[in-house]
Design a protein around this nucleic acid. Structure first.
Length: 418
RNA sequence: CGGGCUGUAGUAUAACGGCAGUACGCAUGCUUUGGGAGCAUGUAGCCUGGGUUCAAUUCCCAGCAGCCCGACCA
């Protein structure tokens, strides 16, 4: 991608309305733009990152044998009355009527839809276990959206639902999902912590929140260094001591980034998701559901991975593989060399942002590159031209390194592990 | 929804009861080019409605919008 054609207006000033560092950097780098409170457009840079994150999630879901589906956002009232959540779901549903006066909601989650669907397709123990997921937009009528992408009224969520013949089978799968979640967060360069949590509007018998420790987090988690107990402070009450070993608890700020629920038979019994076991006896399935907010994850990655100059994207979620900059480009030989290097890189399958812009000082190009945070910067200049090389600098380091033009492809393959 | 704060150009801001200013951006030209360049000429703005007043961007009221705290959440 030529940066001269990129749909992005990178801003030098910090937007007055943004307080969170991730919100500031997303706006300055023109990854997103607000339409209204809690409602954002994703611009090309931001949407590329969003797609990278969903790709990681897809890969990890596929590894635990979950199959991707796409369920409706528009959901009829009747479905929500079955679970008694039409008037009780928190935050309240976005509700409206169609032309015939029939009531609908914009789905804030999909337990009703998926369980209803499963009820017509599961009839035998041979149909189980089953895991279905989607990465899809959710609408939540929050009292107060905040922090840019941290809490929005509409956002993409990966929601996974699993169906099992027994409590034990569900418990085993639940652990597999937890492992997949840790993998997803670690690929985003985040350290996650699974903590015991309350089950809220979703319900069920047990739940874990996936917390990313961060000063800017809105949640507080209690940690026991002695026995590794970790819980949302919501569920430990006023106690300052670990309930399993009595050690003093440590309280830390964290961002809730995912939530897994053991639903038991809460939904399956309402929708009659039954099957015949090997002895021909009718039984009701056990269910789990598991969510990750994609937009919030994008913000959290920035909260944890940035410096004073801007974002430092982990390579797996970076909008581009590398950022190619040319300076001293008034010398057409140097500009042509940079163009040639760009061609070589894209021919080898790399996704490159090429800062081909003229009439822009070197300092400004560097500053913008640091702001948008692509992990590898490749510079072509007067100095590198004479050496038949490029200068490579990683975003998270101050070191630079000369790499011969002939060696660039090899170098990048090694760096990006492709 | 309760409490607080704020609305001036694309962005960040200043001043003012009497012609609205600066910086960045953007456009054009010339000069510049290894860490947010220089000069010149342009471009573009007082959230909406009502009230007070000779006169309101400024003061008052209402509305609308945004942010922050509370609550809730991925």
């Amino acid at each position: 991608m030529l940066q001269s054609k990129l749909f992005a207006k990178i801003k030098r000033d910090i937007p007055a309305d943004a307080k969170n560092i991730s919100h500031q950097l997303l706006l300055r780098g023109d990854f997103i733009e607000a339409l209204a409170s809690g409602i954002y457009s994703f611009l090309p840079l931001g949407w590329k990152v969003h797609k990278k994150i969903t790709q990681i999630i897809r890969e990890e879901m596929d590894k635990i044998d979950a199959q991707e589906v796409h369920l409706p956002v528009l959901q009829p009232k009747s479905l929500w009355e079955k679970t008694m959540r039409w008037n009780t779901f928190e935050p309240p549903l976005f509700k409206f009527k169609n032309q015939h006066g029939k009531l609908f909601t914009l789905g804030p989650t999909h337990e009703e839809v998926i369980t209803d669907l499963a009820s017509r397709r599961i009839s035998s123990y041979k149909d189980l276990p089953l895991a279905l997921y989607q990465i899809q937009i959710k609408f939540r009528n929050e009292i107060r959206p905040s922090g840019g992408l941290a809490r929005t009224l509409e956002f993409y969520m990966k929601d996974l639902y699993s169906f099992h013949i027994s409590k034990e089978d569900l418990a085993n799968y639940y652990e597999e999902v937890k492992k997949a979640y840790f993998k997803i967060f670690s690929r985003c360069n985040l350290q996650a912590l699974a903590v015991e949590a309350s089950t809220g509007s979703i319900g069920g018998t047990l739940s874990h929140e996936f917390m990313i420790l961060s000063e800017t987090g809105e949640d507080k988690v209690a940690l026991c260094q002695h026995c590794n107990l970790a819980a949302n402070i919501e569920i430990i009450g006023k106690s300052e001591h670990c309930r399993s070993c009595g050690n003093k608890l440590e309280i830390k700020n964290a961002i809730e980034q995912g939530h897994t629920f053991n639903l038991g038979r809460k939904y399956s019994s309402v929708f009659n998701v039954n099957f015949l076991d090997q002895s021909g006896k009718k039984r009701t399935v056990f269910m789990g559901c598991y969510g990750i907010g994609v937009g919030r994850l994008m913000a959290t990655i920035i909260e944890v991975n940035h410096d004073q100059k801007g974002i430092i994207w982990p390579k797996e979620v970076s909008p581009f593989d590398a950022h190619l900059l040319v300076i001293n480009q008034e010398d057409s030989k140097i500009f042509d060399k940079a163009k040639k290097i760009y061609q070589i890189l894209i021919k080898n399958g790399f996704d490159i942002l090429f800062d081909d812009r003229f009439a822009m000082s070197a300092g400004e190009k560097f500053a913008e590159a640091d702001l948008i945070g692509i992990p590898i910067r490749i510079l072509v200049s007067k100095k590198t031209f004479s050496q038949e090389a490029v200068e490579i600098k990683k975003r998270d380091s101050t070191q630079t390194k000369m790499v011969k033009i002939k060696e660039i492809v090899k170098y990048l393959k090694k760096e990006l592990h492709v």
